[in-house]
Amino acid sequence: MERHAAAMRIQPGCFNTYRRKLGEVWKPLVEILDRIGIQNFSLWNIEDKVFGYCETPDGVTVSEKDWEAFHKLEEMMEGTFSWISTPGEPMRLMYEDFGVVRENKEQIRHRVFVTKLKPGMQEEYKLRHDRLAEARNGKITQGPDSNFSIWNAGDYIFGYNEIDITMETEETEESRQDTIAWETRMLEIMSWYTDDVDWITGLHHKHIQRIGYHN
């Protein structure tokens, strides 16, 4: 399986128009997704940003005909958004911990988050997460998290994580303190758009919302 991500910015005052036009292109869009073999497609919104995630079988390519069809739908959305990522090019993968991937999504809780790095902090962010990956020593995480990927476009960070709620356990005081220490240190190099660490900082951010899904 291959994971893919994309990110865009909604133009000022155009969110309602964006959602309306998204509804207008949704049926032909999912027809293209099905034809290509794209699965687990979702769109997430926080403030003026939209993050898209999807999966494909290994080695899938998009035909010229399907690219043309995508571009026609993009033209129908014209004026409502601009790209943060580069269309047709992969976003930079900053971290992955796929764990035990669950094909059944019925008991999945999502954690999707957005942050913005301070200037010049992309490589420091990547280094810190590379160390997390090295600490696993190639082992598959057996816990509730799966399909956990973190992507970068510009100075923006987009995270996607599927959490199996049947495997979740109550947080221990030790794990809570570890989380506080990690997140507090990460605040040195980035700021949040989503409300993931509001319980630590006391700040108030919006909760990210899913605005589209197709399996």
Rank of each mutant, 00 (worst) to 15 (best):
N40G: 00
W83E: 07
E96G: 09
Y95C: 12
G202S: 08
R128W: 05
Y53C: 05
T56Q: 10
G79C: 05
Y156G: 01
E2D: 11
E96C: 12
N161L: 15
M94G: 10
L29V: 00
L22A: 06
F148W: 14
G79L: 13
I10Q: 01
P144K: 12
R111N: 10
V197C: 14
Y213V: 10
H4M: 02
D195F: 00
E162K: 07
E89W: 03
Y213G: 04
T141F: 12
E134Y: 03
D164A: 13
W199R: 02
E162R: 13
S85R: 05
Q209C: 07
D196R: 05
I46D: 00
D195G: 00
I180A: 05
H207T: 10
P90S: 12
I157R: 01
Y95K: 07
E64L: 11
I84C: 10
R92H: 05
E123R: 14
N16W: 03
P90Q: 11
I157N: 04
R3A: 08
Q177A: 15
D58L: 15
G59T: 15
V60N: 14
Q39W: 02
E173S: 13
R35H: 13
E75W: 07
I163H: 05
L93F: 07
V50Y: 01
K49I: 00
M77K: 02
P119F: 11
D164C: 08
D196K: 02
D198T: 02
R102C: 15
G143D: 15
Y53A: 04
A135I: 08
E89Q: 14
M8S: 05
N45E: 13
R109K: 11
T184F: 13
E168P: 04
L29K: 03
A181N: 12
I84A: 01
Q39L: 07
V112A: 00
L73Q: 12
I211H: 04
N215Y: 09
P87R: 15
Q142C: 04
A7G: 06
E171F: 00
G154S: 06
A7E: 02
I208W: 00
G154M: 11
E78V: 01
K118A: 07
N137C: 09
P119V: 13
I140F: 03
Y18G: 07
D198W: 01
L43A: 08
C54V: 15
F158M: 02
P144V: 10
